[in-house]
Amino acid sequence: MQVNNQARAMIQSYLTDVAAHLEGMPAQEQRDLLRQLESHIHEALAARTGGQDAQASDVQAVLSDMDPAESYATPSKDRLWNLSRGKWAFVISLAGVVAAAALLALGSGRLAGWVPFFLGAEIAACILGSLSWRESFGKAAVCVSAAVTVITLLSCA
């Protein structure tokens, strides 16, 4: 059975989405699961087309019968410490915003000594977020931390 490029890209996209939800799982288990899923999709395609070449519409039908990528998210034993990298980045970036807002409310003079800490935390959140770019929280962390860094630098200038 042949799968055209568009159909192959759709399968790859689904597998990439699933992989993004497997962060808590050991690496070897992740690789196994993704290989099994890929094999499952091709078996389902063969069953659907009777072994004929699969089109994008066939892949679409097979994938819509399967669980959404989010359903592969590994349940956390401890929700706080098992946050994904992207979520940690987002929490750190938001913590910087909240802390800066609190210090500004107390008086802008108090902010000066804390600038290196804010910048350090925001830059860490930005790096962590960009390493988790596949996650929506990773993207959000990069945006928030970049914005806070720029605002902090401008207010110091």
Binding site: M1, V3, M25, P26, Q28, E29, Q30, D32, L33, R35, Q36, L37, E38, S39, H40, I41, H42, E43, L45, A46, G51, Y72, T74
Partner: peptide
């Protein structure tokens, strides 16, 4: 599939790859 991966990791299940006409090797 997550259960199968875990069972393999824990040594309860073994996997053999065999060529498949439908695409990647059948596990």
């Amino acid at each position: 599939y997550p259960i199968l991966s875990r069972l393999k990791q824990d040594g309860f299940v073994k996997v053999r790859d065999a060529p498949s006409t439908s695409g990647p090797p059948r596990r």
